[in-house]
Simulated assay, not measured.
Amino acid sequence: MNDATPIRPNRNVELGASNEPFQNLHEFVRKARANLNQNAWDYIVGAAETETTMRRNRMALDEIAFRPRVLRDVSKVDPSVERFGRKLRLPVMMAPVGALEIFEPVAAAAAVTRAVGKFGAAHMLSSVSEPGLEKVAEAAPDALRIYQLYVRGDDAFVDDCVSRAVANGYTAFCLTVDTAHYSRRERDIAKRYVRESRLRATGGDYQKSLSWRTVKLIKDKYKIPLIIKGIATAEDTAIALDHGVDWIYVSNHGGRQLDHGRGAMHVLPEIVDAVKGRAKIMIDGGFCRGSDVVKAVALGADIVGIGRLQCWALAAAGESGVLRMLELLEDEVIRTLGLLGVTSFADLNKSYLHPSTATNAPSVFSAFPLVDIEPYRY
């Protein structure tokens, strides 16, 4: 295990115990709303068409209850894990989000990477987030960095991107495969709003024609671990395994691509059964609380991606906001594990879970009942 990742003592997160401006995760949401204009706000809280997939992400999480065990010594709970040969404080990754510069114009993605490097987590950098592959690597050379690519060019384009990621110390490489067609994001359409990055985007036909052939080209040439993001069925999982894919990334793009898809946590058991330990598994889609992370790992995920919460924290307070969000998330994870009667993720399995009924109406904010923001104002 590489112990280069800093493991710092958590700052006091007890209510009222410090001068920290953020004591609860929902406070990042409120501050982000105050800081963002309507276009930026709708970009992060919105999803495709009827936004059904986004709601199902939360519903799938809320339909899982815990089965706690008691009278166990949980005086010391360690939520750290080993992933990619490194020790992480949490099995958590900041998921790839395009156009992070909307939320932090100066440092953008570099601020997220620096924060996760200081904390001891991971960041998957989107190929459509500034300031780009090389500058993010320069900003946080010791962080666990993963590069995610939208294929917007030919074989030479892909080869160049993989080569640059390897040369700049990225730990793994990810292909996103659920964006063959760009979705109808009706919050933007209703306001006639098009992001500048979308206006500059080229090469969409390459994304439409992306196939397993490109996966084979990468695996045949490079040793860097390969992740496929956007897997949603056992059938595609089997094909990915046949191609030697190292990580299956269960994702529906936060509900921002195919409408009326299944919630990510509804998909996860199918993927775990198909993988049978032959690859590692990532997941994202509505994960906002420590209990969400615990549920995913109990069901078989190895890393949980944090998307919208990452953006809210970044918009609320930049790099320090992302770092503080991770500290609060860690506190929630530790308490959840301890109350379940386990002292580490290694002790956790699906026997601690039980199907149940969601008590909150699913929405982008249903993880935060204290948030009183109206998400649908134009």
Results as ranks from 00 to 15, higher is better:
Q38H: 03
L149D: 02
A313W: 03
L36F: 07
E63W: 00
S163P: 02
Q23G: 13
P9Y: 03
K118W: 00
L25M: 14
D259Q: 03
Y193E: 12
T237Q: 10
I102T: 13
D159S: 14
N10L: 15
L337R: 09
S209R: 15
P375H: 09
L268V: 11
R184W: 06
V294G: 10
R278D: 00
N12Q: 09
S344E: 11
A115P: 03
M1Y: 06
R200D: 07
M59T: 07
G46K: 10
M93I: 14
P21Q: 09
A107D: 14
L144R: 06
A99C: 11
P355D: 06
A274I: 05
L210W: 04
I231E: 07
T343I: 13
S127M: 07
T336H: 01
Y182L: 15
Q310D: 09
L15G: 02
R308Q: 09
M282D: 08
I283G: 13
N39M: 12
L149A: 07
L226I: 12
G254N: 04
L149Q: 02
K87C: 08
V342P: 08
E101Y: 05
D236N: 15
W312Q: 05
A367N: 06
S127G: 14
A167G: 12
S75N: 11
L353Q: 10
I228Y: 08
P225Q: 10
I271D: 03
D3K: 12
F119Y: 12
N37A: 08
R184Y: 09
F22Q: 10
R55F: 00
P375I: 14
A47P: 11
G338L: 05
L258M: 10
T233C: 08
L25P: 11
V13Y: 01
Y170K: 01
S366F: 01
S356N: 11
A317P: 00
D42K: 12
I7Q: 14
R185C: 13
V92S: 00
I231T: 13
I271H: 04
A34T: 11
G254R: 00
A143G: 07
G204Y: 02
E270H: 13
Y147N: 05
A165D: 00
T343Q: 14
L323E: 09
G263R: 04
E51Y: 04
T336P: 01
D159W: 07
N252F: 03
R262L: 15
D220W: 04
Y170L: 09
V81Q: 01
A180K: 15
V245M: 02
E27L: 10
I231F: 08
R198F: 12
E101C: 03
T5Y: 00
V371S: 14
A32F: 09
